[in-house]
């Protein structure tokens, strides 16, 4: 564990905790953006340039801004909501989180990468990533593209309907 890793991990964890614990919704969204940026920096630190930068571009640049926008448009930004969850729900939350953590930990500890110590970390350049996306994974990419387009058109139609209704 190197110093940069520890710092970045700490930033990510603090950001994530702040996103859970802070009161104001906008503060939570901003803290979440910090956590996202921390994860992106971790990827960069591990040498996964494309992944790290895509994380920054998509999560910080798009998702965080989207969340912030939603918070603003629904006027949740300045409401002093009562403490989030009563005790039973908290218990369920902890249970779910624990279960997910256990599954992820199990998957990591049983992955073959961790048991073959001599194996060098795969270095995927952006060129290789692009080639893989455009050649061997061309079909999945196209399918995902089609689905996203459908979702986009769907969103537009939903938005248009409301406008016609209130005219």
């Amino acid at each position: 564990m190197s110093a940069p890793f520890i710092i970045l991990a700490a930033v990510t964890l603090v950001g994530a905790c702040a996103a859970m614990l802070l009161r104001g919704l906008v503060h939570c969204a901003l803290a979440l953006a910090v956590a996202f940026a921390g994860i992106g920096a971790l990827y960069l630190n591990l040498g996964a340039q494309f992944l790290g930068l895509a994380q920054l571009l998509v999560y910080v640049g798009a998702i965080a801004v989207l969340i912030v926008f939603v918070v603003l448009l629904t006027r949740g930004g300045d409401s002093d909501s009562p403490p989030l969850s009563p005790a039973p729900r908290q218990f369920t939350g902890i249970l779910v989180a624990g279960a997910i953590f256990a599954i992820l930990a199990w998957a990591i500890f049983h992955s073959f990468a961790i048991h073959t110590p001599g194996m060098p970390a795969p270095q995927a350049t952006i060129r290789q990533l692009g080639a893989a996306l455009m050649e061997s994974y061309a079909l999945p990419l196209e399918v995902i593209g089609l689905m996203l387009t459908a979702a986009l058109i769907g969103a537009v139609i939903v938005a248009m309907k409301e406008k016609q209704g209130t005219q």
């Binding site: 906008v26 940026a37 340039q49 571009l57 640049g61 965080a64 912030v68 930004g77 952006i126």
Partner: peptide, 25 residues
């Protein structure tokens, strides 16, 4: 000299939106 310099540029640029929002809000 990043392998993905242009991507870096746009990734960083995306964060500036958040700072503008922070200032406004």
């Amino acid at each position: 000299n990043l392998d993905s310099g242009v991507l870096f540029f746009f990734a960083i640029g995306a964060i500036s939106e958040l700072s503008v929002f922070m200032a406004g809000w």
